Amino acid sequence: MSGVQQRLFRHLPHGRLQVDHDLKNIAAFDDDISDIDTDYPQRSVSMMIGGPPGGGIDILARRLSVAMAAVLGQRVAIDYRLGASGNLAAMAVAQAKPDGYTILLGTRSATLHRTMYPHLQYDFKRDLTPVAMVARMPVGIVIGHRLAARTLREVIQIARDNPGRLNAATLGVGTTNHLVSVLLQDAAGIRFQHIPYMEMSRALTDVVSGKMDLLFTQLAGGISHMNAGSLRAVAVTSNGRVSSLPDVPTIAEEGFPEISADDWFVLLAPRDTHPAVIAKLNLVVSQLFADEELHEAMTTMGYVLPSSPYTPDGLRRALASDNARWTSVLRNYQVNGFQ
């Protein structure tokens, strides 16, 4: 049994999950949650994601699914549902049976569908139940060698000298990386040609080859290229510098503190999923990232893990606040999805 399993199974004695001590530093669950039937899961669990292979959510999902499977004793399979900036995956989970066997690893874009994709047949607030905050990740502003710049300020100056000539790749309309690019253009008084990609690998290839000038991306997807020198990060959107890229300044250091913004990854389940299942999944995720080896591996790839766990109710409140901010950005800048 691995170190992760040993630490987690200490909380799973005799087929029952005792959560009292683990949850004493966060808000308490309902009374019936303190004694959870651990028969769940009895078969494999499907974890849906709306991002492409090789992207930040895919890399995280692969790590998370393996670690969760080791603890749950059942396979956690990744199911890719691409389209509508991750909202097709969210809709599929919202419409799934609420038995805990179909869950979503979602990002901010899934909360914005009422503004971006109003025709989709689900409501994030009504049809999905928050389970756990898994990680946050800064957006990296990345360039290849085609662009004769070494800093964000130099990129901005080139854009000013060549209005509308630079092209910028993101992983979809309404994603956090796209919205960061919109905010930067407004703050710096410049304009890029926005090119949304469905596949991270293709976006990276096009920036490395010089077909694209810039890429706004979750760090995990491109960090190996940055470390190899084929791509250069000129800024990250986190509040502080990223430990794995200590020489890359924050966007606030470059003069744009209002654009500081991490993307986030949360685990969600269909509405009416039993509270005991939600509580078990929440505890498993919280304990997984307390493991030092896993924590170090994720941090090296650019993920920022929660300093303390969220309860499902606490996460719901945090998502509601986040949604209000970014819905305002969508409306103010008239960002609309493909209908």
Results as ranks from 00 to 15, higher is better:
residue 170 T to F: 07
residue 171 L to E: 01
residue 172 G to L: 04
residue 173 V to L: 03
residue 175 T to C: 00
residue 178 H to R: 07
residue 178 H to W: 02
residue 178 H to D: 09
residue 179 L to K: 08
residue 179 L to A: 04
residue 180 V to L: 01
residue 180 V to N: 01
residue 180 V to A: 01
residue 180 V to F: 04
residue 181 S to M: 13
residue 182 V to Q: 13
residue 184 L to Q: 01
residue 184 L to A: 02
residue 184 L to G: 04
residue 184 L to T: 06
residue 185 Q to N: 14
residue 188 A to C: 08
residue 190 I to N: 08
residue 193 Q to W: 07
residue 194 H to M: 12
residue 198 M to H: 11
residue 198 M to N: 09
residue 202 R to D: 12
residue 202 R to I: 15
residue 203 A to E: 03
residue 203 A to I: 09
residue 204 L to N: 03
residue 206 D to V: 07
residue 206 D to F: 10
residue 207 V to K: 06
residue 207 V to L: 07
residue 213 D to R: 10
residue 214 L to G: 00
residue 216 F to H: 07
residue 217 T to F: 05
residue 217 T to R: 04
residue 218 Q to V: 05
residue 219 L to A: 05
residue 220 A to H: 01
residue 220 A to S: 15
residue 222 G to D: 10
residue 223 I to E: 07
residue 225 H to I: 03
residue 225 H to G: 08
residue 228 A to S: 14
residue 229 G to H: 05
residue 230 S to M: 06
residue 231 L to E: 05
residue 232 R to E: 01
residue 232 R to H: 10
residue 234 V to D: 00
residue 234 V to G: 00
residue 235 A to N: 08
residue 236 V to A: 03
residue 238 S to C: 09
residue 239 N to W: 13
residue 240 G to N: 12
residue 241 R to P: 08
residue 242 V to R: 00
residue 242 V to L: 08
residue 244 S to R: 11
residue 247 D to K: 13
residue 248 V to W: 05
residue 248 V to Y: 01
residue 251 I to T: 10
residue 252 A to V: 07
residue 254 E to H: 03
residue 259 I to V: 12
residue 259 I to T: 09
residue 260 S to H: 03
residue 260 S to M: 15
residue 262 D to K: 05
residue 265 F to V: 05
residue 266 V to K: 01
residue 267 L to M: 13
residue 268 L to E: 12
residue 268 L to A: 13
residue 269 A to M: 06
residue 273 T to L: 02
residue 274 H to W: 07
residue 274 H to F: 02
residue 275 P to G: 11
residue 275 P to H: 14
residue 276 A to D: 11
residue 276 A to R: 11
residue 278 I to T: 05
residue 280 K to G: 04
residue 280 K to H: 11
residue 282 N to G: 05
